[in-house]
Design a protein around this nucleic acid. Structure first.
Lengths: 352, 352
DNA sequence: GATGACTTGGAGAGCGCTTTCCGAAGTGTT
DNA sequence: AACACTTCGGAAAGCGCTCTCCAAGTCATC
């Protein structure tokens, strides 16, 4: 980074409040008032100021404004992964996953209307985390939406300690007094269990996500509990990492160990897609030989063949809600901490 | 937005440069120099300053710093859609599409290493566009990556006129002197044509994207030209909007009008997925009855059954390259305008 | 016509930082 | 010992904006 005349051709200087004030023949303060619509300014001056704004082509400098108001009109979306480092290929996968896009879409649907921009941040190392929290305390963003990845992440605690308005999507792994929006993952898993047992499956297995992700864990717990209630005290379980590949491998492993399996609950649709492939390779028909229930109801579910019966995860709505929650929290920092839990539903298609 | 003590409990004030200076017993200027590693400061003072930083827990305020340096360490990703308005459902679809995630992933892989954050902006209306450009001229972001959507978008021109460092992903619809990174879409389409004709298809059709998207247009042009060269002066063409649904409908329309179709080039994988469904419904086997080539080589391509033969679109690499290009341009504003065109390749799988 | 209540606009003090300009030391040469 | 040079650190002027004071003006009231 070298110094020097960087932006804009030399001599070209953007009009400032000062310039507008001069043109309008009033003081800086008055222009500021007019522009921010504060207090009753004489209608005549009011008009003169707007004329001057038009003449000069004035646009307020957000940075300067933020410095004094302590408001930036920005919300940070932080993807925190305590295990990942800078060139971790994991992140590539993460962005390609429909999960990310659905979250961003849901957030933007709310933020856009409020004129708030989303700043994407990835933090992996301890240093990045400290730095992020420092920046946030300085009001670099008005608040933050946290997307927590595998592992016990110290970030949620750091954020609450720093008093930064924050909302998590998916509950924190460790109990932390933080706002969050989550899905009743266990209920969703129960729905899958009930359905598989209900259609007469005898040996039902599960392909789960990584065990250190809370959402993944809840799905396992919910599924096991429900299966137990149906008289299946034990269920074969293989875990993957939410990618299609891992789903395929998990299914192969499952088939090898439990050839009689006739029902499987897969903890997300992407893995289910892979599992479907493995079953086809093995010559098993879905749903006749093996019934399958996925999780998420992502676009992959309809794209699959047979189309996946899956647990609907209203991620867009949840993201939108978390944005609203965050905005409310920013507006009123004394707001008490709350969480919103969404109830999943089962979407019936061909696979089970 | 009410006034008042917003951030942070009353009384808690973040340490400033001033505080550090006091603790270290030097002037603000010296602390600034030490922190930014400028000039040779006496090693002893140097250490004292860092100690003071540690003691106070000082973190520089990025906003204040940016105000004077005119550098923000932020790059804006603007999704510009001259036709969309605030509650356009189109945007939801857009984010859910793997395209978006792949771009973000590619950008972040470069930006993250440089410690630059990505600020997501969606602009639809004229007013938003003007405002964005105004903010950018003020240096709200150091530069911008533009993702252009359907239609002839005035944004690229506005950006170059304003002298804002910008790089487009996908060439602009109208000729504008702007840096861009694109794929040789026409070559990709040729690859598909050659392959379909090469395997002996007699009646080859195309399912295209919206005609007002440059990339989509290039694929049509390239395909037609190549088919013509193979003696097929005319190809049936139905256009969709890049969604799976539209692909399914397009395929149905195609089958109704040209029952003898035995080869089809689909302008993206998502639509190909839909087309595959339509073919299955119609009882046509892929690739035996109808051969299909997709475009993008997105995750959908492997997920499909049969897996799609498709034109590989190295979107992540392209996004990464555009980030590098932008960074170079920011560093050296006099850099001459250049574009990088990537060459697509054909990925052979089962569908053709 | 004096008093008080209210409205309106300006001066100016910051927000937290960088950076130019200078004076004060320190170094070396004649 | 006097000179020119270099190095280093401090004072202070901003970056562009908001917002608290405060003075002046307006109007109604007694």
């Amino acid at each position: 980074m070298t110094a020097g005349t960087r932006r804009l051709p030399v001599g070209e200087r953007l009009p400032t409040l000062e310039d507008v004030a001069r043109v309008a023949g009033v003081s800086r303060a008055t222009v500021s008032r007019v522009i921010n619509g504060i207090r009753n300014v004489d209608p005549q001056l009011h008009e003169m100021v707007w004329n001057a704004v038009g003449q000069t082509g004035y646009v307020p400098n957000r940075l300067a404004r933020s410095l004094v108001t302590r408001r930036t009109g920005t919300v940070a979306l932080v993807v925190s992964d305590s295990e990942s480092h800078d060139d971790d290929p994991f992140m590539g996968r993460f962005f390609a996953d429909p999960y990310f896009g659905r979250v961003v879409g849901g957030l933007m649907s709310v933020l856009r209307a409020a004129g708030i921009q989303l700043a994407l941040q990835i933090v992996g190392t301890e240093e990045q985390r400290t730095r992020l929290v420092g920046d946030l305390r300085h009001g670099q963003a008005d608040g933050v939406i946290v997307l927590s990845l595998p592992g016990h992440d110290p970030l949620p605690r750091m954020l609450t300690d720093a008093g930064v308005p924050a909302v998590m999507i998916g509950r924190p792994a460790d109990p932390v007094p933080i706002n969050y929006v989550d899905l009743a993952n266990d209920t969703g898993a129960s729905l899958a269990a009930d359905h598989l047992v209900g259609r007469g499956c005898q040996l039902v297995a599960m392909i789960s996500g990584p065990v250190d992700v809370p959402a993944s864990n809840d799905r396992i717990t919910g599924f096991r509990r429900s299966m137990a209630r149906h008289g299946h005290a034990w269920v074969p379980l293989v875990s993957g990492n939410f990618t299609q590949d891992s789903g395929e491998q998990a299914m192969r492993a499952l088939l090898a160990e439990h050839p009689a399996v006739d029902g499987v609950f897969v903890a997300n649709d992407l893995m289910a897609l892979g599992a479907l492939l493995a079953l086809r390779d093995a010559g098993r028909h879905v749903p006749d030989d093996v019934a399958m229930v996925g999780f998420d109801d992502s676009s992959a579910a309809v794209a699959a063949s047979p189309a996946l019966t899956t647990v609907r995860h209203p991620l867009e709505d949840m993201a939108a809600e978390s944005a609203r929650l965050l905005m409310a929290r920013i507006e009123d920092p004394t707001m008490r901490i709350s969480s919103v839990i969404y109830e999943p539903t089962l979407v019936l298609r061909q696979s089970a």
